[in-house]
Structures are given as structure tokens and as C-alpha cells.
Design a protein around this nucleic acid. Structure first.
Length: 917
RNA sequence: GGGCGAUUAGCUCAGUUGGUUCAGAGCACCUCGUUUACACCGAGGGGGUCGGGAGUUCGAAUCUCUCAUCGCCCA
């Protein structure tokens, strides 16, 4: 690969990814090393890569790559989720396009189509993750509905049933009329929507009087069984026990008194529809009311409604309003905002419906899950998600988990019915055997048993993921090595759907599978840490989604900026746990979000910067001859300093990793590489140009020692940066020097942080400040950067200490273009301006015409005022006994030092003013 | 209705148990520079009463209370 031109990621990324795959670097098999394990949050099998995946998987990849570099046995298990509702919906749609109706084919035929579909489109998202650089062990790719994992799900169902934790019952449930299945509470998204509140009057039986109720759902009037008022409500006391006529339906229903009714809401009278509202159902139970289900499964009006039969519920809302108006029973329509529950998957408005379903009791498991997080066995990052978690999982709030779904795509519930008996068994054969025992009839055959038609909730398979991907339910060999996993990286939106339930499964099964001794030693939890990523949002803070069209195309971003650039962009967009605002611009004309990003661009520019730095180093002439003392001194200082800076950076990054502050780590590293390594270090060692005898301007050579050192440093931070930007680092790693087989950045050694020399760093910081000050004067006065200037430093103890550092003086001279740099005892040097760095005073000689005495005086006076204020503050603090006695000694000592420094600076400022004025 | 979180520079955000110059970073912006790695660059610069108010403290961006605005979770 030539080093010409700018860095172009495309080819390089392809090359290294296939190289890593060939070398099997992502593969993990149990050995005697420490394991570092992450299981992927399995994306939907038919999904395509979106911004959320990129963020999430970038973070997982960083953690895995770092662990690998640290010599751990890093194992990242990829896979996909069968996503029953979403996938079934897609397959149904695909079949419809082929002219096939789901109702016309058998379960077996449907599943055949579904598996064909899955085989065709199922792997796409995983291939896309590879483009991002994900170093998952692809040989371990799992699927929640594959045979082994399904077997585990069925076993778990039977086991929990045996333990009495799974039961079947008739409950008010959430019904998705589009998918035509029941949903768990967690799959219903409640949002505020604009709607209307209809005031409808019901006539009192045998009276001219009416009672007016307010409802957002007039179409359910046909299912009314009562009108309820608050018992304390004076307005309606005279109506208790009377009856009213339900409009349209023309049925008489009782007026009942129930404390649930809020007197202030609407008219204070509530229509009660036990079949279609959770609260109404409860009222119905209390008052023994009739339950009239007026909807069919698909959300159209049922026979029981008696009117509008077969029409959709929202169409009926309009019709019924019209009819109510015509009969004079519509009193008022009020605009209103109310919470509407929609299906997470189909976005259909969810109906409450009384259905017979399978549930899992949450009582015991939720308590364990609560304790796990609250006693610190499982740690959340950021911590505050613990509050949200506790709120859901605590005993008084948690509700039983509805686990059956009226779908075909999923694990079929292993429950078999014969007469009134329910047999739960892992296989039909075992079910038959049990049925014979239960009924006492030995002549039963398989056809006498009817298996439950429903499948299990997708999450009922994903909650086992950290165990089932290691085949933990059939053999414990791998599980014992990889379990518990180290960290789970996921979005906070599935904290209840998934995270809480995996914790429950961990506590339910780890001991059962691995034994008491194992869990005693290693813990029952499925993961030690949970890193919650934020949601990726657009500039209006809306969640990025396909339907809104507000998301850039993930793959286009990778094409444009390279995976490294995109990883950089994702990471620098926001801190852990916070939602991240992704800065993709908007095309005003087409209203579309462009697949562009300034932050990803910055990432690509960073790659380019490193690329060009390498180019420069490689282009230098190298010599083994001894250089001038001046050059040797500068090089020595630069080398010493960058090593200390490197150690400082490393220590900082390590601290940030511990709390998963990965964006901070990347920025720390970015600053080190760009500012310290390139802008300071490399500029310090870079040889100057000199006129040769023939008049040609030629760059001097660089000493071999300095070159080798630069390459060493470069190599070191390639390893540190590798987890964040794997491709560019691997490429540069190989460009830095000839490599033997297997000597690759991805498997290089991550260094351990060491102590570093803070004093040296401070001294060089001061030197950099001097250089910056000189340049600032040049910039203000329009003095060319290559015109040498004279610089003086006042001879003090501090100055001696500073200049005792070999090379420091020369370094300042080189970087600030100082012709003469002299230590002076004089207080007054003509044609100079004076400035203070730290506590040292410097005088910079400038062309007389460029010195503005008035401005200098003004500056000096302002400085004096600032310093005097600071002195006053320090004096009052130190004069305060309570401060001196209460504040920690090092703080007081610091304050004393600050005062002394301030006072020294005040003297200098006064001196400067005296001279000028 | 119950709960959680946020409010710091034009934008996106840090600020680690209250304490050394703590008011920061990146981007954006302004000025200058086409010097020989990189204009996807270099040098320099401007910019915030830390949402308002009160309190605790020797000391508050940080702790407490309160108000305001915004976001989220669960009913």
C-alpha cells in the first residue's frame, strides 16, 4: 500500500476484516485464560442495521477488543432473535403479496415459508455488523428459534410449570388487533395523542331525565353494562339504583355507585364497559356486571355488538357519533389529549380484552432480581437506571408476565389438552404417557391430545440467552467457562422486556445448571455490569426510526466515512446512557435526512491526520551520526516528555474504562495523539531546513534514535486506539515496520498504566505556554513567524529550576523562533514587552514600532487589578480560622502557595506599570 | 396520580464523594498564514452571572428547599 494522498478507508477496511477472519482472531474456545464474555443483544432476524445497532455494537466491540489486547479469552457471541410478532407480520405480508392468505394454509406450510424467508434475509444484519468491524465469534452465531435453543425454552416452560410458576388463566389482556395476538404489558407503548371527548346523554328509565357521560371511545357504548357515579357525588345521589337506556343499543343498564369514579373528571358519570377497559372490568367484577365483547379479534364489531357488525372500530366511532347526533344524544364534543396504548411492533391501537392465556408469576423471581441489583451483584451504568428498574421490579408494582401469543412463528406451547385436563410435557410422547397416567386410560393415542395452538413470547426465549448460547441447558462445559458474562450492552428501552428478565433467569437457573459450589464462587447473575446506551435521536430529539425517515443510512455512512470514522462519530456524539443527538443534516428540499455527519467526518479526518503523520516520518532522511547538542537535547526532552504524557493518558483512559466512559476515553486519546504527539512532540523532533552550500534548502536528517523512538510511540498508541478504530490502527501498525506473521495490532499487548513524572509535564507545559505567548504577540503585531526574536527570562530560583531541564530552552527557541534566549538580572530591558508564565517573568524584544505602550499599560493594570482581587480572596480565606482549621491541610497549603505566587506576580505587575508609566 | 432525570459557551456535552487558576472539551465562529506530513492543515483569538430564587457551609456548578421549563418511566 503506497502512502500517497489521503487516507481512504474503503479498501483498507475490507482487507483487514477478511485478514482477521482468516486468522480466526475472533474465535474463542475455552482455555486456561481468564474469559471475557459478552453476548450480543440479538437483533431481529429480519432487521437491517440502524443507528442504534451501530452505537451498541461499536461499544461491545471496543470492550471485546480491549479485553483481547489484554490477553483475556475474549468471546463475543453474536446471533439473532426470531422476533415472533415482527417476523410473522413480515411473512404474512410477503405471502399476501404472493396471493396466499395465512388462514388458507396450515401451520406447517406457514412455518416452511417463514424459515425460507429467514434463511434468505436472516443473515443480512450480521453481515452489516461485520462492515462496522464487529469482532464477534461468528462461528458461534445463534438464533433464538434454532433447535437447541427452542428445546431449552420448552424445558424451561415445563420446569417452571412443575414449580408452579406458570399458570393459565382468564385475564384482561392487551390485544393487538393487527397482529391478532395478545401482548405483555411491556409491549404496549402509551403515548399522549390528540383525541376527542364525547359527551353522550343516557336517558333514565321511566323518566325524562338524562345523565351525561364523557367518553373517548363511543364505539364501545354497545358494550356498556352500567353507568357508574361516585357514591359521594351529590349530583347523582337520587339516581342510585335506577336504570338508564344505552343509546343505539337501547338496553337498560343499572346506575351504580363506585369509588373509582372521579367526580371532577368529565361529568362525573362514567360508562362502564367491562369487556374493553381494565378499570371497567374491575368495576364489573365488583358489581357483578355483564361483560359484552363487542369487538372481533381483528378490531371489527362483533355479532354481540348488534350494530355496525363487521365494520372497523374506528370507522364505527365516526358512524356512531353521527347516529348519536341524529338522535340528539350527543351533547358536546371536546378536544382532548389522552394516553393511547399502541403495539410496540405493529403500532396498532391496543384493545383490552378478556382472554385465556398463559402467565408466569413474577413474585419470587422479581424479588431475586430486585436484590441482585440493589446489593450490587449486577451493576448498572449509568447508575440512575437502578431507580427505574426498582420501580418496575418491586413487589407492589410487578405484574405477572403474559407469555402466550396467538402466533405460529415461535416455540409452540408444550401444553396438551384432553377433556378438562392439561398436560404440560416437553414432547408429545411424554405428554401421551402422562395423559395415560392422569386419565387412567391406557388406550389413548397421540390424536386424542390437542396441543395448545399458541406460541411463546419471543422474550421467553431471549431471557435465557446468556445461558442458552452456551448450550447451558444440555451441557455445562462451556457455560461453566463463560458464565457469568462480563457486561451487557443494551438500550435502556428494553430494561424490563429483557434485562430484568435475564437477571431473573440467571437466578432461577444458574444453580440448577452449574451447581451450588459454582454459583457460590462465581455468582448467579448473568452479567456483572449492564451498560445502558442512550437512544439515538435526531436534532429535534425524536427517536430515529425508519417510519419517520429521520435516520441516516447506516451503511451509507460507513461507505462515506469508513467504519472507523463512523465509530468515532457515534462515540463522540454523547456520553454513556444519555440519549445521543446525531447531527445528520436535513435536505430542505426533499425533507430527507442525509447520510452525512460532521462528527463522522471528524473521525475520518483523524484517520487522515495519523496517516499523514506516518507519511512525514517515513519520508525523513535518517542518520546514525551524532547531531548538534542543541538537537540532541531537544530530542531527549521530547522523548522523555511524550513518554510521561503517554503514561498520564493511559492512566486517565483506564479510569474512564472502569466506569464505561468510553467517549471520554476516545477524546482523551484523540487529544493526546493530535495535540501532544503530532503538534508538540513531532514538531519538536522534526528536523529543520538548512541552506546547503549550493544554496538549496534541504531538510536535515533525523537521528536513528529519535526515529526509532517515534515509531515505538506510534506503535504504542495504535494498540490503545485499536479498540475504538480497529482498521486504521491495524493498517498503520503494519506500515510502521516490517511485521512477522501473526504480529498484528489486534493481538498486540495492551500496556498497564504506570506512575508518571508530573513535574516534567508541568515544566514542558510552562514551555508550551511561553511558546504560545510569543506567537500570540507575533500574531497581534503582525510579526512574521520566521523572524527570530530575542527572549529574556528573569533570573530567579524558579527560572533556574526550569532551565535546568536539558533541552527546554532549545525547545522554546525552536518552536517560537527565538534567536537569543538569555537569563537576565536586569529589571528593565528596552524595547521589550513583559509577561509572566507560572511565576517566571519573561521579556520579549519586539521591533520598537510594534510596541504599543498605552495598550501594554492598560493590560498590565488590568492584570494587577485581577491579581489584587485574588490576593484579597486568599488573604480573607487564610485569615479565617474556621477555614484554616476545617479545610484539609493540602487545600490550605495550596491556598498559601497560591497567595505567595499571587504576591510575587503583583510585584512584577507593579514593576511593569512603573516602567511603562 | 406515583417516580426518575435534565437545565453549564452558538451547538452537543464533561465537570468523579463541596476545596489548588474550576468555569472546561469537541464542533462552530473570528483573525492571520498557502513554511517542504496533512487546508481533511497550522498559529492565534472571542464567547458562559453554571435555568431563577432562598438556604447550609470557612468555601457551592457540585448539598438542601422552592419555582420555572423540558424529557422519560410506571399507573
Amino acid at each position: 500500500m503506497s502512502l500517497e494522498g489521503n487516507y481512504s478507508p474503503d479498501e483498507i477496511e475490507k482487507k483487514w476484516y477478511s485478514y482477521w477472519m482468516e486468522k480466526d482472531y475472533f474465535k474463542s474456545v475455552p482455555d486456561d485464560r481468564e474469559a471475557y464474555t459478552i453476548v450480543i443483544p440479538p437483533p431481529n432476524v429480519t432487521g437491517v442495521l440502524h443507528m442504534g445497532h451501530m452505537l451498541n455494537n461499536t461499544i461491545q466491540d471496543i470492550l471485546i477488543r480491549k479485553a483481547r489486547l489484554e490477553g483475556k479469552n475474549a468471546c463475543w457471541v453474536p446471533g439473532t432473535d426470531h422476533a415472533s410478532i415482527a417476523t410473522e407480520a413480515k411473512v404474512v405480508k410477503m405471502l399476501r403479496e404472493k396471493g396466499i392468505k395465512k388462514s388458507d394454509i396450515s401451520r406447517e406450510e406457514f412455518l416452511k415459508f417463514a424459515f425460507e424467508w429467514k434463511d434468505k434475509y436472516g443473515g443480512i444484519i450480521l453481515e452489516q455488523l461485520q462492515k462496522l468491524g464487529a469482532s464477534a465469534d461468528w462461528s458461534r452465531t445463534r438464533f433464538t428459534m434454532e433447535e437447541k435453543l427452542s428445546k431449552a425454552v420448552i424445558e424451561v416452560f415445563c420446569d417452571l410449570h412443575k414449580k408452579g410458576k406458570i399458570y393459565r388463566g382468564l385475564r384482561m389482556t392487551n390485544w393487538d388487533p393487527e397482529a391478532q395476538t395478545v401482548l405483555s404489558n411491556e409491549e404496549v407503548i402509551h403515548t399522549e395523542e390528540n383525541s376527542q371527548l364525547f359527551h353522550v346523554r343516557y336517558q333514565i328509565v321511566d323518566s325524562d331525565e338524562y345523565v351525561t357521560i364523557a367518553t373517548t371511545r363511543p364505539e364501545t357504548i354497545l358494550g356498556d353494562s352500567a353507568v357508574a357515579v361516585n357514591p359521594k357525588d351529590e349530583r347523582y345521589k337520587h339516581l342510585h339504583g335506577k336504570k338508564v337506556i344505552v343509546p343505539i343499543a337501547n338496553r337498560a343498564v343499572p346506575i351504580i355507585a363506585d369509588r373509582y369514579v372521579e367526580m371532577e373528571f368529565g361529568t362525573g358519570a362514567l360508562k362502564v364497559t367491562p369487556a374493553h377497559d381494565m378499570n371497567d372490568y374491575d368495576i364489573g367484577q365488583r358489581h357483578d356486571l355483564e361483560t359484552i365483547d363487542v369487538f372481533n379479534a381483528n378490531g371489527t364489531m362483533s355479532e354481540a355488538a348488534g350494530f355496525y357488525i363487521g365494520k372497523d372500530r374506528f370507522e364505527v366511532r365516526k358512524l356512531i357519533v353521527k347516529d348519536l347526533k341524529a338522535s340528539g344524544n350527543l351533547v358536546e364534543i371536546e378536544n382532548y389529549r389522552n394516553k393511547v396504548g399502541r403495539s410496540e411492533r405493529t403500532n396498532a391501537v391496543v384493545e383490552s380484552r378478556l382472554t385465556l392465556q398463559w402467565f408466569m408469576s413474577m413474585k419470587e423471581n422479581s424479588k431475586e432480581a430486585y436484590d441482585a441489583v440493589n446489593n450490587g451483584e449486577v451493576k448498572f451504568f449509568p447508575e440512575h437506571f437502578q431507580n427505574m428498574y426498582n420501580n418496575w421490579v418491586k413487589e407492589e408494582n410487578v405484574r405477572d408476565w403474559c407469555i402466550s401469543r396467538q402466533l405460529w412463528w415461535g416455540q409452540r406451547i408444550p401444553a396438551y389438552y384432553i377433556g378438562d385436563d392439561i398436560i404440560v410435557a416437553p414432547t408429545p410422547e411424554e405428554a401421551l404417557q402422562q395423559a395415560k397416567e392422569v386419565t387412567g386410560n391406557n388406550d389413548l393415542t397421540a390424536s386424542d391430545l390437542r396441543q395448545d395452538e399458541d406460541v411463546l413470547d419471543t422474550w421467553f426465549s431471549s431471557w435465557l440467552w446468556p445461558m442458552s448460547v452456551f448450550d447451558g441447558f444440555e451441557s455445562q462445559e462451556e457455560l461453566a467457562y463463560y458464565y457469568p458474562t462480563n457486561v451487557l450492552v443494551t438500550g435502556w428501552d428494553i430494561i424490563f422486556l429483557w434485562v430484568a428478565r435475564m437477571i431473573m433467569a440467571g437466578y432461577e437457573y444458574s444453580e440448577q445448571l452449574l451447581g451450588a459450589e459454582f454459583v457460590e464462587k462465581n455468582g448467579k447473575f448473568p452479567f456483572a455490569d449492564v451498560y445502558f446506551t442512550g437512544m439515538v435521536r435526531d436534532s429535534k430529539r425524536r427517536k430515529m426510526s425508519k417510519s419517520l425517515g429521520n435516520s441516516p443510512e447506516a451503511l451509507e455512512l460507513i461507505e462515506r466515512y469508513g467504519a472507523d470514522g463512523v465509530r468515532f462519530g457515534m462515540l463522540s456524539s454523547g456520553a454513556a446512557g444519555n440519549d445521543i443527538i446525531f447531527d445528520a443534516p436535513h435536505d430542505e428540499k426533499t425533507k430527507k435526512t442525509l447520510s452525512e455527519s460532521a462528527k463522522c467526518q471528524q473521525g475520518l479526518q483523524f484517520c487522515n491526520k495519523m496517516w499523514n503523520g506516518l507519511k512525514m516520518l517515513r519520508g525523513l532522511e535518517i542518520t546514525t551520526e551524532k547531531q548538534s547538542d542543541e538537537i540532541e537535547n531537544i530530542n531527549q526532552l521530547a522523548m522523555k516528555w511524550i513518554e510521561e504524557k503517554y503514561e498520564e493518558t493511559l492512566a486517565q483512559i483506564e479510569r474512564q474504562y472502569e466506569t464505561y466512559r468510553l467517549s471520554d476515553s476516545l477524546m482523551t486519546l484523540y487529544n493526546f495523539i493530535w495535540n501532544d504527539f503530532f503538534s508538540e512532540y513531532l514538531e519538536l523532533i522534526k528536523p529543520a531546513y538548512a541552506k546547503k552550500a549550493d544554496g538549496e534548502n534541504k531538510q536535515l536528517p533525523l537521528s536513528q534514535a529519535a526515529y526509532d523512538h517515534a515509531i515505538d510511540m506510534y506503535e504504542k498508541f495504535m494498540t490503545i486506539l485499536h479498540p475504538f478504530m480497529p482498521f486504521v490502527t491495524e493498517e498503520i501498525w503494519h506500515q510502521l515496520r516490517e511485521r512477522k506473521a501473526g504480529e498484528d495490532c489486534i493481538v498486540s499487548t495492551y500496556p498497564k498504566a504506570k506512575a508518571y513524572d508530573k513535574e516534567l509535564i508541568k515544566k514542558v507545559d510552562a514551555a508550551i505556554a511561553v511558546i504560545s505567548k510569543v506567537r500570540s504577540y507575533r500574531s497581534e503585531r503582525g510579526i512574521k513567524s520566521h523572524l527570530p526574536l530575542k527572549l529574556f527570562i528573569k533570573n530567579t530560583e524558579g527560572a533556574q529550576v526550569l532551565l535546568a531541564e536539558d533541552g527546554l530552552k532549545e525547545a522554546i527557541a525552536k518552536r517560537a523562533t527565538i534567536g537569543e534566549f538569555t537569563v537576565t538580572d536586569s529589571k528593565d530591558i528596552p524595547d521589550t514587552v513583559s509577561f509572566v508564565i507560572g511565576t517566571e517573568q519573561f521579556f520579549l524584544e519586539l521591533p520598537a514600532a510594534t510596541i504599543d505602550k498605552v495598550a501594554e499599560l492598560k493590560k498590565a493594570k488590568a492584570e494587577l487589578a485581577r491579581l489584587t482581587g485574588m490576593e484579597k480572596g486568599s488573604l480573607s480565606k487564610l485569615g479565617n480560622e474556621r477555614y484554616v482549621n476545617n479545610a484539609p491541610p493540602q487545600v490550605v497549603a495550596g491556598e498559601k502557595k497560591k497567595l505567595a505566587d499571587t504576591q510575587a506576580k503583583i510585584e512584577i505587575a507593579k514593576e511593569v506599570i512603573r516602567k511603562l508609566g
